[in-house]
């Protein structure tokens, strides 16, 4: 192993790792908004709205993320959708993870005992108030853990945006190999950086999970 080389390229890879974090965090943020909208749509009183949400989730889950990325980036301009690589990575990542996340959120909400809903409604709370004050606080723990798993998948999936030349961790690693011819060193270092990012995500998830479920241990 050429340790000197590894030290030399570390600043470049750290910078690229930050792009990985940035693209993932943005996709997670917008993905959560998309997921919440999909959950609301799936409980809509209007049937076509429910059908659309279900169809959307099926399509996203039925196709590889890689293909979705290529389709939007290379196929998009044909229908007037021109996105720069970074934006394309965020958008496709958000719409992809949003579909999975909507199922995770729905599952967490449905895991709350139906008696909780009845007790709340019997006091005179409406549907939304019940969701806000009773259901979501209890669903939060499971929701955080499920979303955490998806956040990890999102970080790993972000390596695929190297194919549309976003200069993130994997793309930068490949570039460095082109100039140094040291794939072992470069990929080892980039793998370590993925591990650091993912452990940080897991730490944040665990922290939020503990906070959300504190009441159960009092």
């Amino acid at each position: 192993m050429d340790f000197d080389l590894m030290i030399d390229i570390t600043p470049l890879l750290v910078k690229a790792a930050w792009v990985t974090v940035d693209i993932s965090a943005r996709a997670l943020f917008f993905g959560f908004i998309i997921a919440s909208a999909l959950v609301a749509m799936r409980t809509s009183r209007i049937p076509p709205v429910r059908w659309f949400a279900r169809a959307y989730i099926s399509v996203v889950r039925g196709t590889p993320y890689f293909v979705q990325l290529l389709l939007v980036f290379y196929g998009g301009p044909a229908v007037g959708l021109r996105l720069d690589p970074f934006t394309c990575g965020v958008v496709v990542g958000a719409f992809n993870i949003g579909a999975y996340m909507s199922e995770a959120i729905r599952g967490a909400i449905e895991s709350v005992d139906s008696g909780q809903n009845e007790a709340s409604r019997s006091l005179g709370f409406g549907r939304l108030q019940t969701l806000q004050h009773i259901i979501l606080p209890q669903a939060a723990g499971l929701m955080i853990r499920s979303v955490g798993v998806l956040a990890i998948i999102l970080v790993k999936n972000s390596s695929l945006v190297s194919i549309i030349s976003v200069i993130e961790l994997t793309y930068q690693a490949q570039r460095l190999i082109g100039s140094t011819y040291k794939p072992l060193e470069v990929f080892t270092l980039s793998a370590l950086m993925y591990i650091v990012i993912i452990y940080a995500v897991m730490g944040i998830v665990e922290f939020l999970y503990r906070r959300a479920t504190r009441y159960a241990f009092l």
């Binding site: 005992d113 008696g115 909780q116 009845e118 007790a119 709340s120 409604r121 019997s122 006091l123 005179g124 709370f125 409406g126 549907r127 009773i134 606080p137 209890q138 009441y215 159960a216």
Partner: peptide, 25 residues
């Protein structure tokens, strides 16, 4: 109907077999 029933329910107390207390409060 939702508005109507929420108002009505505020005037009726219900006690359940399985308590259904809110565990997070």
């Amino acid at each position: 109907f939702e508005r109507h029933i929420n108002h009505i329910r505020q005037n009726m107390g219900m006690v359940f077999q399985h308590f259904n207390l809110f565990p997070h409060l």
